[in-house]
Amino acid sequence: MTALAQTAYLTTRHVRFFLRQPWFIGIYLVQPVIWLLLFGALFKNVVEIPGFTIGASYIDYLVPGVLVMTALFSCGWSGMSIIEDLDRSIMDRLLATPIHRSAIIVGLNLYELVSFAIQALIIGGLALVLGAHFPGGLLGYSVLTLCAMLVGAIVASFSDAMALLLRQRESVIGINTLLTLPLTFLSGAFMPLKLAPDWISTVATYNPVNWAVEAGRDALSSTPDWSFVLPRIGLLVGLTILATAFATRTFRSYQRSL
């Protein structure tokens, strides 16, 4: 109970900071819109490729990909907040209080997910305006958002861990370029995997980003196959727990370096 309360207080701190940065809010809101419009326009005609059997407009296909990608790209910067707190000694102050170490990680990651949820609403609304269809309805879109959040939480934890292990901005930038971009494109986010080379399909089978995209896309379809969706969500939940535990453990490494 106390760990939950501590987490909530720390999440509140980050949310408050976010709400006081108008330009930051602006970037947050505009970024997913750009992805949606840009990729929507760029790949508009790929549905003409033989074998692209979704039968609907590309925007329908694109929404799950953009949503998961947005979660990755937003949450991947999570470690920057850790670096800020390290630089300003706020981390030392937190660590000198009797709070659970996990509350620091979870509190920050929850804030990332709260702000992502707002982005998810905007993407969904804009997609509808652009003529997308969500046969899976609100439930489907919520499951998709959940899948994207779980991937976001995993990436945020890795970003936090890198920040605590290496304590440099470059480490967080590194995780963003080396992890989030390849993971996004080694998935069916923008292109059905059966149109991709075999090796990419193989890699994608083990790629959590692809689990999220495919599970979310399936949940959003007219006939969700829950026996396909739920195991993937289960795997993502398991990975989220592992990644959070890993990030929490890196405090030991940080404190050894002090």
Binding site: R13, R16, F17, R20, R88, S89, I90, D92, R93
Partner: peptide
Amino acid sequence: HGAVDSEA
């Protein structure tokens, strides 16, 4: 280093 949250 004055560990106060300067944005709060």
